[in-house]
């Protein structure tokens, strides 16, 4: 589904990704872990098409298309979803309005009929129940005055409604208490399917206790320095990034 080869990206002539390669197949869940500043969030942002990054080398193929040539909304309509680490507030725009506009933009793109308000609400209400989100949530402005946990639950709700092919969740677990983490994890688990791939960008291992990844990659200095199964996450938890990085450095020497 996604094939990243030797990707190099910089901001203001400062290289952030320095030759990153990663292959993600349908049905797989990949965790990208790494210390702060390792390039995790940069990777998520570049895949979703955020401005301000200069592509200096390498390729990204997504379902046989040149991903980096696509506008952010095209990528979204082709099934890429980014769960934001810091979801923005949009005052005056209803949560439900944004979500309906998003879904219908994607449905139009796929040649499917748009949902009317009634059909849409029925769809949303089902998913809201699962996420433990109250009805009044819909009428509130997008993320305005939401707590950290509410914002993250809203991201997962959007994902559940939009049903992406490739979900990239950027530190979806940060700032969550244990109850919220469980709810968010439940939402993520519900999305696992043989047709869908996920990339979980996270600093901590604890999310992975609830959502077991197929692969774990350690990102440092703009490159993936180690890859392994879910046991790698436990190793990181036990030894800390420094230990694993030192080991990797040793190997590299």
């Amino acid at each position: 589904m996604l094939q990243i080869d030797n990707l190099q990206v910089s901001v203001d002539d400062r290289p952030l990704l320095k030759g990153l390669s990663l292959k993600v197949n349908a049905g797989e869940v990949h965790a990208i872990m790494g210390p702060n500043g390792s390039g995790k969030s940069t990777l998520a942002a570049v895949l979703a098409g955020r401005e301000g990054y200069v592509h200096t080398g390498g390729t990204v193929r997504y379902r046989d298309q040149d991903l980096l040539a696509m506008a952010p909304e095209e990528r979204a309509r082709e099934g890429i979803f980014l769960g934001f680490q810091y979801p923005v507030e949009i005052p005056g725009v209803n949560n439900v309005y944004l979500l309906k506009a998003s879904l219908n933009a994607q449905r139009r793109h796929r040649g499917e009929p748009e949902l009317d308000a009634f059909e849409f609400l029925r769809l949303v209400r089902g998913q809201m129940e699962m996420m433990g989100i109250p009805e009044e949530f819909l009428r509130r402005s997008v993320n305005e005055g939401f707590s950290g946990g509410e914002k993250k639950r809203n991201e997962i709700l959007q994902m559940l409604i939009l049903q992406p092919r490739l979900a990239i969740l950027d530190e979806i677990d940060s700032g969550l208490d244990i109850d919220a983490l469980k709810v968010v994890s439940k939402g993520i688990q519900a999305m696992r399917s043989p047709d869908r791939a996920m990339i979980l960008v996270t600093h901590y291992q604890r999310l992975l206790d609830y959502v077991s990844p197929d692969y774990v990659h350690v990102l440092a200095g703009g490159r993936i320095i180690r890859s392994g199964g879910k046991e790698l996450a436990h190793e990181l938890e036990a030894e800390g990034y420094e230990g694993v990085l030192a080991g990797a450095a040793g190997v590299a020497k």
Partner: peptide, 17 residues
Amino acid sequence: FYCRQRGISAEDAVNMI
């Protein structure tokens, strides 16, 4: 970017905001 990442065109996003 948030709106566009959800599939909404830049024009529509500005209008909405």
